[in-house]
């Protein structure tokens, strides 16, 4: 399969990445190779095989419903690029 720079651009948009034309071209070419390689899985017959999404074998860990603070707001906002001490600030969402 050949993946076009346009298709790459669409996916990049979903991932909030802005790639220039040169990068789109390069990525498209690389992705072609990589995806073609990934498609070799298609040759394997996996009928009836239950997908394994995680190696975890134990039961659902559950938490008791008790509220307990673990930090202060100042700590939460300490790394914020833009804040007024109360909120995280971003450009206006239209």
């Amino acid at each position: 399969m050949t993946i076009s720079p346009d298709a790459v651009a669409k996916v990049a948009k979903l991932a909030k990445l802005r790639l220039d034309d040169a990068k789109l071209e390069r990525f498209a070419g690389q992705m072609d190779d990589i995806l073609a390689y990934m498609e070799t899985l298609g040759a394997l017959d996996t009928t009836g095989v239950e997908p394994l999404y995680s190696p975890v074998g134990h039961a659902t860990p559950l938490r008791a419903d008790t509220a307990a603070p673990t930090c202060t707001r100042d700590q939460i906002l300490a790394n914020a690029p833009a804040t007024d001490g109360q909120f995280f600030i971003v450009p206006k969402i239209v």
Binding site: R63, T66, A67, A68, P69, T70, R73, I76, Q86
Partner: peptide, 16 residues
């Protein structure tokens, strides 16, 4: 384990 209590100041019921 953050509280769900309504009416607190912004970002007071927040953890990592």
């Amino acid at each position: 384990g953050c509280s769900t209590r309504f009416g607190v100041a912004p970002n007071e019921n927040v953890c990592p």
